[in-house]
Nucleic acid binder design. Structure first.
Length: 565
RNA sequence: UGGGGUGUCGCCAAGCGGUAAGGCACGGGACUUUGACUCCCGCAUCCGUAGGUUCGAAUCCUGCCACCCCAGCCA
């Protein structure tokens, strides 16, 4: 897509590096496999992937699995699938942070020998106490000046499994009075007797992110390591590790603002809570901002990339209106989705002057702007269904659709006139009796006759019952954005409670109506525009003869809007 | 005076000393066998704020204000 959208400051940085002599570009996406890929993490994939492509470089996928307590293969597989579906090819290869555990260990030994790391016996709470506060410096660990030999011996025994979890750590020896908390002798290895999803029981000590990440980047030859803003403070430590170990090719960390979207939650912790608490039907529930969820909701990779492109990349914290994301699918689907007819909330219409048993066959275009997409046939008999909303017994103001004594065009068929309304026991109209103007048949001589409104319909005799799942946003309008929710997390329980209270519990509605036979057997993930109803996608739950469609986005209904005011 | 960041239209976001791009949203009009789509047109005398430098500043300098991140043996 041609883009007149905002530039990307990271490209400027890479341009400068190239001008300064850098000869290649290599990026990576390093997720921890502890959840499903969502739109927020997709931004990171996209940024790193796009930079590699733009500069003819390689892109790696690397699972950052340095904490066996939180990771699993289910998530590895799921994330890979989502990245494949998006079409982001990791031509630099797929790796695991755990592939480098041997190297990490080796370098740790090197740091000890250089006098840049030491084994600390402080208990976790004592380490916290001696770290100081944001405004006061910390104090040196009593174990800080341990000799190299003793450190080597202790570290070796940590690895051998001689000590229990939490009893000791390996710390980088930097500066306990640094104003940057990350530099106050951070732990770089901890003891964790836990089976790793990838290395099994080979290790009982695991490197910390701040130590392992720069090593992983350096070993893979990464040149530009793009991550989110909260790691800015970690960059000095990242560079410290690279320089202390002495890597020749130094990767460079660049930070960008994460993606926030109104009425959407992207913190993995909260998403997990929705799944585990059964607030949604799973990680692929269409209300979820996961890639699998968005896919089931009808988003296409093209629409998602377009959205990320338009939202832009910058360093200012921001919340993008979800309307922009919807605009992007709407635009994509508007071009490619075939048009078809469905009725979600049906009311029966009997065509009084239609000869009993007569069946007409009408031709419907698949797309008004793309004749090459062809057309399909629709049968029509004496009884049809129209949308209940398309009829009003006592319409206020300008109402172009069907009303008593009024005329309306049935899309692709005839103009009908409402002669009589049958009222059901509940007081609502239950059936409409109309007469057909046979001379107005679409495509015929008389089809030029204009009436104010045109509505969609399905043939009662041949339409197939279908289920329509209408999904709303996960957060109500009052809860403006993810930030509102993330701000609640002070205490785990209070945050959790308040978050689930905020979840939009009315966000899934199931309607039962009809679709025309031609699309009843649509393959999962096939898109349609059901005319004014909006864009729909065939759900994977669809079974033979039992179509299920999810709403992607509705069309604007300016009449409905005017009515509200 | 802890440190690190960020502040440009309702929401994103360009701009890098020469006199405010673009997208979404919104408003108006044209078109229309769905009031959608599409197409036109409009939409910041102003860049957090107060000063300063300059012929000239959103862009440079200084002070202030606001918001975000950091005290995990998480990532």
């Amino acid at each position: 897509m041609e883009n007149t959208y905002a530039g990307n400051f990271i490209h400027d940085i890479v341009d400068q590096d190239i001008a300064a002599g850098k000869t290649r570009v290599h990026t990576r996406f390093p997720p921890e496999p502890n959840g499903y890929l969502h739109i927020g993490s997709l931004k990171a994939v996209w940024i790193n992937y796009t930079i590699a492509k733009k500069y003819g470089g390689k892109f790696n996928l690397r699972f950052d699995d340095t904490n066996p307590a939180k990771e699993s293969d289910e998530f590895v597989v799921a994330m890979k699938d989502s990245i494949h579906w998006m079409g982001f090819e990791y031509d630099g290869g797929m790796f695991f942070g755990s592939d480098y555990f041997d190297k990490c260990y080796e370098y740790a030994v090197l740091l000890i020998k250089k006098g840049l790391a030491f084994v600390c016996d402080l208990a976790p709470e004592d380490m916290r106490k001696t770290r100081g506060t944001l405004k006061t410096p910390g104090v040196n660990s009593p174990y800080r000046e341990r000799g190299v030999e003793e450190n080597l011996d202790l570290f070796g025994r940590m690895r051998a499994g001689e000590f229990p979890d939490g009893s000791r750590v390996l710390r980088a020896k930097i500066d306990m009075s640094s104003p940057n908390m990350n530099m106050r002798d951070p732990a770089i290895y901890r003891i964790l007797h836990k089976t790793h999803h990838h290395t099994g029981d080979k290790w009982c000590i695991y490197p910390m992110y701040d130590y392992a990440h720069p090593i992983q980047d350096a070993i893979e030859g990464i040149t530009h390591s793009c991550c989110s803003l909260e790691f800015e403070d970690h960059r000095p430590l990242y560079d410290w590790v690279i320089n202390s170990i002495g890597f020749e090719d130094k990767p460079r960390q660049i930070e960008f603002a994460r993606l926030n979207i109104t009425r959407t939650v992207t913190g993995k912790r909260y998403l997990r809570q929705l799944v585990e608490g059964k607030f949604v039907d799973g990680w692929d529930d269409p209300r979820m901002p996961t890639i699998v969820g968005l896919r089931r909701r009808g988003y296409t990779p093209e629409a998602l990339v377009d959205f990320l492109t338009r939202a832009g990349v910058a360093k200012a914290n921001s919340v993008v209106d979800i309307g922009l994301m919807e605009h992007c699918v709407r635009e994509d689907l508007g071009k490619h989705a075939p048009r078809a007819m469905a009725v979600i909330d049906p009311i029966k219409v009997v065509l009084a002057n239609w000869e009993d048993g007569k069946v007409d066959e009408l031709t419907m275009e698949n797309h008004p702007d793309h004749p090459e997409m062809g057309e399909h046939k629709v049968k029509m008999g004496r009884e049809i269904y129209i949308e209940r909303d398309d009829f009003m017994i006592d319409p206020p103001g300008k109402f172009f659709r069907l009303k008593p004594g009024g005329e309306v065009r049935l899309k692709g068929a005839y103009i009908i006139k409402c002669e009589n309304v049958v009222t059901g026991e509940d007081g609502r109209p239950s059936e409409l009796h109309c007469t057909v103007d046979f001379s107005s048949r679409s495509g015929s001589e008389g089809s030029g006759r204009k009436v104010k409104g045109t509505i969609h319909w399905v043939d009662a005799a041949t339409a197939i019952p279908a289920e329509f799942r209408l999904y709303d946003y996960m957060l109500s309008e009052e809860t403006e954005d993810a930030g509102d929710v993330d701000g609640l997390e002070e205490t785990e329980d209070a945050g959790a409670k308040e978050f689930t209270d905020n979840f939009n519990h009315q966000s899934k509605i199931v309607a039962r109506g009809f679709v025309e036979p031609a699309i009843a057997g649509a393959a999962p993930l096939t898109h349609y525009q059901f005319l004014r109803l909006g864009y729909f996608v065939a759900d994977p739950d669809t079974a033979p003869g039992k179509p299920v469609f999810n709403r992607v986005v509705g069309l604007k209904d300016t009449y409905a809007k005017a009515k509200e005011q």
